[in-house]
Write a protein that binds this DNA or RNA. Structure first.
Length: 290
DNA sequence: CTGTGTTCCTGTTCGC
DNA sequence: TGCGAACAGGAACACA
């Protein structure tokens, strides 16, 4: 379920637990997720402290006092569950059937534990020395943070200039903007009245400057991500919602997963269409998105 | 280099 | 109710 807003929500939920006390022990219930766990994974974590829990794109980054960074990616179906103060494992002993797909359990010295669950196992965890992060294949060449100061219409114009790929594909390309996924790309294009089918380069003028639509798009991206994080943050308050579920914000989707629904744009008489682009569903309105 | 299609894996939903 | 097909939020990889 996780796109950037969900990962950020998860980060905020996990931060107090991960940085609040040391790691006592880490339990691996299988040898791999999407990739094999690195050599000595559990041993390299045991006894360490997490000094900060950060996020880059859809990656969670736990900075360890050993100088290594714990990289965690939730893939399509990853989630974390917090079990507070369970020093003797009483809860788990009381539960006769273990929840399926619990693959990693972090035990903290405080007695709390955090369990990573991932049915499809598209997620992964790695350990990389801090100094090697920037050059690591996962991060080298990663695009700008959509909520950071580097995402400007001018910067996007430089990236999109001359590109023939559909706008939808360009926005999903993590080398251009890092952290946008299928849902929020659809939502941002609808909010800025841009067709996902048009060539990305058509948003740039002959001088390489952003056209009006591109300015609107950047604004829409910021807006929709911001609103989703806010909604996630409010669903965090009742706690245990560290699963990165879309929370209440999914009721706010204007086009995503709303095929045939009336277009929510005021005054627009169109309906939401669904098409497949590079193997993934795109939802948009043919009438008001040009 | 650019753009597209396939693939990893399991669970849920939908039509018959 | 059962059963197969379609589809799912990511992104690495192979290939034209």
């Amino acid at each position: 379920m996780p796109e950037l807003p969900e990962v950020e929500t998860v980060r905020r939920g996990l931060e107090p637990v991960f940085t609040g006390s040391g790691l006592a022990q880490v339990e691996l219930r299988r040898a791999d997720l999407r990739f094999p766990f690195p050599q000595g994974f559990a041993a390299r974590l045991a006894g360490r402290r997490v000094e900060a829990l950060k996020r880059r794109a859809k990656y969670l980054l736990g900075e360890l006092d050993s100088g290594e960074t714990l990289i965690m990616h939730l893939g399509m179906s990853g989630s974390f569950r917090i079990d507070a103060d369970d020093p003797e494992g009483a809860y788990h002993r009381a539960v006769t059937t273990k929840p399926a797909h619990d693959h990693v359990v972090f035990h903290f010295t405080s007695g709390a534990s955090v369990t990573y669950n991932d049915p499809r196992r598209f997620g992964f965890m790695l350990l990389v020395p801090r100094g090697e992060m920037a050059a690591h294949p996962l991060f080298n060449g990663l695009g700008v943070e959509p909520l950071g100061p580097e995402l400007t219409p001018q910067r996007l114009a430089e990236e999109l200039r001359g590109r023939k790929a559909p706008l939808k594909a360009a926005l999903l390309d993590q080398r251009i903007i890092a952290g946008l996924g299928n849902i929020y790309v659809c939502e941002a294009m609808h909010r800025s009245y841009l067709s996902p089918l048009r060539a990305a380069g058509t948003l740039v003028d002959a001088k390489g400057k952003p056209k009006r639509g591109l300015v609107d798009l950047v604004e829409a991206i910021r807006q929709v991500l911001g609103e989703a994080i806010e909604a996630g943050g409010s669903s965090l308050r009742d706690h245990r919602q560290t699963d990165g579920s879309l929370g209440y914000f999914q009721h706010s989707f204007r086009v995503y997963d709303r095929e045939d629904a009336p277009c929510p744009t005021p005054g627009c008489r169109g309906h939401v269409s669904r098409v497949i682009q590079s193997g993934r569903s795109t939802f948009f309105c043919r009438d008001c998105q040009k």
